[in-house]
């Protein structure tokens, strides 16, 4: 049980977690570690050998968040990118291209500006004010879950703090990671931030209407990504190009849990 808010979903320790209800990279990781999770042993009087994931508490909370989403048949996507790559803009415009019902958990440093922008478009959003934090963790997202009406949602997006480093280390309890890279940032960012791009299930090259003005090679970006993460898809997107937005909507639809793991609707 959630002590703070009384929600009725149990938290499983990392060892008890089932293997069946998870997808996404971060999950494969935690499963691997469970095998390593040996019983601590005092070798001699002083040396204790443990093999323990440092962020395992966060991972237990992330699994709990996923249980919240799954109890409502929601698929959750973690949106990550540098500041200003177009996360909020994408979410503002997506509504015009999909019938799927979605809400947004917003991570922002100081203001509720992004949530206000979404709410102004009629999209349900809750802002987590992360203060000085450079990433969201599973506990922050859990706090926000209780401020969102989950009933009837198909998708919950988590818009992470704009940062290509820190958010990559934290499973926040979403099912898939979407990483945005905007054309003005340059095609070398995949190579410079390999951990983030390795965790991506989808990479969106955003602001593609600006391609004529920048030396950004989409082929180079694809080649770099393939070296790190060969199974990941890349979509070229511009909010000014309806077809590209429809392609994002189609990817989301194909990647709903009910379409990938056969969850009942």
């Amino acid at each position: 049980m959630c002590k703070d808010c009384g929600c009725s979903l149990p938290r499983h320790s990392a060892i008890q977690q089932g293997h069946d209800h998870h997808t996404g990279h971060s999950h494969e990781h935690s499963h691997k570690h469970q095998e390593l999770h040996t019983n601590p042993q005092l070798n001699d009087k002083k040396t204790l050998s443990v093999i323990h994931k440092i962020l395992d508490k966060n991972d237990v909370e992330a699994a709990h968040n996923r249980a919240h989403f799954e109890a409502h048949h929601i698929t959750a996507f973690n949106l990550m990118s540098s500041p200003g790559s177009g996360k909020t803009t994408l979410l503002e415009h997506l509504k015009e291209y999909t019938k799927l019902n979605y809400a947004v958990i917003e991570g922002d440093l100081e203001t509720s500006r992004d949530a206000d922008r979404l709410i102004a478009k009629g999209i349900t959003a809750h802002q987590i004010q992360t203060g000085s934090a450079c990433h969201l963790d599973a506990f922050m997202v859990h706090g926000a879950l209780h401020h969102l009406p989950l009933e009837g949602l198909d998708i919950c997006f988590v818009e992470n703090v704009g940062n290509l480093v820190c958010p990559a280390s934290y499973d926040v309890g979403t099912h898939k990671n979407i990483v945005l890279l905007s054309v003005p940032e340059g095609d070398d960012k995949i190579e410079k931030y390999p951990v983030m791009f390795r965790r991506a299930d989808l990479v969106l090259i955003t602001k593609c209407d600006l391609l004529p003005y920048f030396d950004f090679s989409v082929d180079e970006a694809k080649a770099q990504l393939k070296k790190l993460n060969p199974d990941t898809q890349i979509l070229e997107v511009s909010i000014k190009n309806g077809d590209s937005m429809h392609a994002v909507a189609a990817w989301l639809n194909e990647n709903l849990r009910r379409n990938t793991v056969g969850e009942p609707q």
């Binding site: 990781h29 002083k46 040396t47 050998s49 443990v50 093999i51 280390s169």
Partner: peptide, 12 residues
């Protein structure tokens, strides 16, 4: 890809 705590030395 992991961050693991491996060993602790302690005084009892």
């Amino acid at each position: 890809e992991d961050m693991l705590l491996m060993q602790l030395e302690m005084e009892q």
